[in-house]
């Protein structure tokens, strides 16, 4: 079993941050806001995966980050290419290239598992998305196991575990005085070579406390429930905002637009950008001319649950939800995916 002392890990991270971009969980925002607020986001600093300069900026005690790891592989906005005019007056396209290797430290196992879902969608079928592919190839994932399942987590009900090593290159598990290190992939091995790992004979690994597991609806139950009034009833309180989609590690919908910006220096840049979008948005399906095949709110809400648990498994052979619990916590009207899943799973087979 491999082991690294806390101090040695910090020193390694400090060195690493000098060499390449290091993304890690870090606290963001004003320190004191409204500690008693009913809105968990307003209570104090939130933790995000952000680029850090060293170990001192890393948040070590965090539950889950406010946004998932997805924002570093499918950024909220990215330029696909810029459109320039060549010397002959003809348009020239300059595609964005993302070559720089980087380390993503402290990713939670559920977030890493979320990348497996994005991989299936963005890379699993030709043609692959080159922007996502470059970011994915250039990134080594160092996972940080959860010491326990947090409130609202349900990874163990959807096939994950708080200390799963399946989707990372290296997994760290906190133990007395440091971290147990599992090197999972060849990519991880290359990175671990510089970590100065110790070989120890025996290491007592903690058993993370798990939340109660629940059964998921069967495919038949999903099929039979599609036109049920149930969706209208859950949709009653839905606000049709996009929080659930945007905090989700596996949502991937995007919009594409051209835009022209003028920099403060007066430079005119024409570019095609893509940005996150959500099936919960009112205009998501609106066609030019105004037709909206998903005009009712409950149709949009229903789509999100079916996408995770029915469409993605069929279309991309991947589980669409990793049980991170972010949508549960962030939904302002308490639409709780666990409740929906359990409601459907309780139904009599049709």
């Amino acid at each position: 079993m491999k082991f690294i002392e806390t101090r040695a890990l910090h020193e390694w991270l400090d060195r690493l941050a000098q060499e390449m971009p290091l993304i890690a969980p870090t606290a963001v925002g004003p320190q004191e806001k409204a500690p008693g607020s009913r809105n968990p986001a307003a209570q104090g600093q939130q933790v995000f995966y952000r680029e850090v300069e060293g170990a001192a900026q890393i948040a070590w005690d965090f539950t889950r980050t406010a946004l998932s790891a997805r924002e570093h592989f499918m950024p909220k906005t990215e330029t696909l290419f810029t459109i320039e005019t060549g010397p002959d007056g003809k348009a020239v396209l300059h595609e964005t290239k993302l070559a720089q290797p980087r380390v993503f430290f402290g990713i939670r196992p559920c977030d890493a598992r979320g990348l497996r879902v994005l991989d299936a969608v963005m890379l699993g079928q030709e043609p692959a998305d080159v922007y996502y592919a470059q970011r994915r190839q250039n990134t080594t994932l160092v996972g940080l196991a959860c010491p326990q399942m947090w409130e609202d987590c349900f990874c163990n009900s959807v096939g994950g575990a708080p200390d799963a090593a399946d989707d990372v290159d290296i997994l760290l598990i906190q133990v007395e005085g440091g971290f147990a290190v599992q090197v999972v992939t060849a990519k991880g091995e290359r990175l671990a070579a510089g970590m100065g790992l110790q070989e120890v004979e025996r290491l007592e690994l903690p058993q993370p406390k798990l939340n109660e597991q629940f059964a998921l609806p069967t495919q038949q139950q999903w099929l039979a429930s599609f036109n049920d009034v149930y969706w209208q009833r859950v949709g009653d309180r839905c606000l049709s905002c996009r929080i659930c989609s945007y905090v989700c590690p596996t949502c991937r919908c995007f919009d594409v637009r051209d835009e022209t910006v003028v920099t403060p220096q007066g430079e005119r840049i024409v570019r095609r950008v893509r940005a996150w979008d959500s099936c919960q948005g009112v205009n998501y399906r609106v066609q030019a001319g105004g037709a909206n095949p998903r005009a009712n709110l409950e149709q949009r809400l229903r789509n999100r649950f079916y996408c995770k648990y029915y469409y993605v498994p069929i279309d991309y052979a991947a589980d669409g939800c990793v049980g991170c619990g972010r949508c549960v916590i962030a939904c302002p009207v308490n639409i709780d995916i666990r409740e929906v899943l359990q409601d459907l799973a309780r139904r009599e087979p049709a």
Binding site: G29, K33, R38, N39, A41, A42, Q43, Q46, A66, L239, C241, I243, Y246, V247, A330, P332
Partner: peptide, 8 residues
């Protein structure tokens, strides 16, 4: 507006 903001 403020009560629902997921970013506080």
């Amino acid at each position: 507006c403020e009560a629902v903001c997921p970013m506080g």
